[in-house]
Design a protein around this nucleic acid. Sequence first.
DNA 1: ATCTAATAAATTGTCGACAATCTACCACAG
DNA 2: CTGTGGTAGATTGTCGACAATTTATTAGAT
Lengths: 225, 225
Amino acid sequence: MSDFLTTGLSTAVQKKIEELVLQGKLQGGDKLNEVELAEMFGTSRGPIREACKGLVQAGLLTAVPNRGVFVRKMDVREALEVYDIRAFLDQLIGQLAATHGTAQQIRELWDIHARLDKAVRADDFEAYYPENLSFHEKLLAMTGSERLTQMYLALVKELHLFRRKGLIQQGSMDVSNAEHALILEAISQRDPVKTGLAMRNHVMTAKQRLVTAIELQSVGEGLQS
Amino acid sequence: MSDFLTTGLSTAVQKKIEELVLQGKLQGGDKLNEVELAEMFGTSRGPIREACKGLVQAGLLTAVPNRGVFVRKMDVREALEVYDIRAFLDQLIGQLAATHGTAQQIRELWDIHARLDKAVRADDFEAYYPENLSFHEKLLAMTGSERLTQMYLALVKELHLFRRKGLIQQGSMDVSNAEHALILEAISQRDPVKTGLAMRNHVMTAKQRLVTAIELQSVGEGLQS
DNA sequence: ATCTAATAAATTGTCGACAATCTACCACAG
DNA sequence: CTGTGGTAGATTGTCGACAATTTATTAGAT
C-alpha cells in the first residue's frame, strides 16, 4: 500500500488483489468477498469495488451481477488461445527489437543469455526462471512501444491463471535457451524478420511442449480411473 | 441503459461513456466531471467511478490522482504502434479463420465482398464502411477465439481515439477491396499461412496510407505557417 | 499592471448506511 | 426420506454526506 499517494487507494488495492491472484492465494473460481477484502486492507468497500472493476476489465476476474466477482477460471483451450496470441505479439516484439534496439541493449541480452546458459548447465531452474523473465523484459524494452509492452505483460499475467504451472514450467531449459541463442543471433545481425520468426517459434514450441505435457497427464489420469 | 438488468448499472454507464468517447462527443484530453455524468445518467457517483475505472483499464481514459479522469490523447506515434499490433493480430486471425471457418462462413464472406465491390464501383463510401466492418467481424467470428476477438475489438476502439479520422478513412476503397479478394482467395484455398500474410499486409498498407496522408498534411500545414 | 498569497468554490476520495438480491437453513407436506 | 416453501442471514448494489485536495477568485504588495 506504499504507492497509495501516487496512484490512489483503489489502484493500490488493485495491485494487492492482483498479487493474491498471481501468487495463487486466490485460485480460479474462488469468490471475492468485498467486506472481507475491505477489512483486510483497512478501507471501505468503495475502493475495493473499483479495484475489482479494473481487474475484471483486465481479465483476471469475472463479475456476475448480484453475486459478486470471482477469480477467472482458465481452461486448457483458453490457455492455448493465449499462447497463439503471445506468439504473434512476440514476433512483432522481435521485429521491433531488432530494428530499434541499441548495441548496448543487445550486449546486455548476451549477458543474460550467458547467465541462462550457466543455469542450464547447472540444471538450476530457480536461477533460470528470473533470468528468463529478464531476457523477455529486456526485449520488450527494446521495442519502444508502450502499448505493446502493456498488452504483452497483461497476457503473461493472464497465463498465470492457468493453474497447472508444473506443466508449463517443467522442462527443456536447454531447448529453450538454444532458441534464445537463435533469437540473439538474428537480433545481432539486425535482421527483424528473422528475429521475429525466431521469437514466434520460441513461443510456439513452448505451446507444443504444453500440449504434449497435457496429453501425457490425461493418459496418466485415464489409467488411474 | 437497457441492459442494466443483465450486467449491472456501472457496466451500462461504462458503455454509455464509451459511446460518448467513440462518437467523439468527448474528445481527447477532455475532462470527465463525475457529478455531471451522475446527473446525466440519473445515478450517484459510485457507479460512475466504477465505470471510469473500467475505461481507464481499457485504455480509453487516463486517470490523474486527485484531479480526475480524462479522455486519452492518442498521438500519431501511438496510433502507428497500434497499427503494428493490429497487423500481427490480423495475421493470427487469418490463420485461424482459414483453419476453422466453415464453408458457409466463407460463402458469406464472398457475399460481403460482392457488396463491397458494388460500393467501390459506385464510389459509395457510406455503403462501403459498414460492409467493411462486417467483413472483419465475420473473420473474427471464424477464429473461434474469444480472447482474440475481445483483444482485437479493444484495439479497434482504441484507434477511434486518434482523431484525424479523415486521414484514416479517406482513400483507396478499390485498393482495400482488392486486398480483400486476395484474403478470400487464400481462405477459400484453406491456406492459413497465405491468408495470415494477406491479412497482415492488408493492415500494413492501411498503415502506410495513413503515414503518407500525415506527411502530406504536415507539408500543407508547413506551407501555411 | 503583474505577481503573490490567502481565501472561497468546486471536485475528487472515502466512508457508513440503507435497499435489493441472493444463499443457507429449517419446517413441513407428500 | 425427499422435495418444496418460506424465513433469516449474509452479500452485493446504490446512495448521500463528509474529508481531502485541487482550482478559481480576490486582495494586497511591489
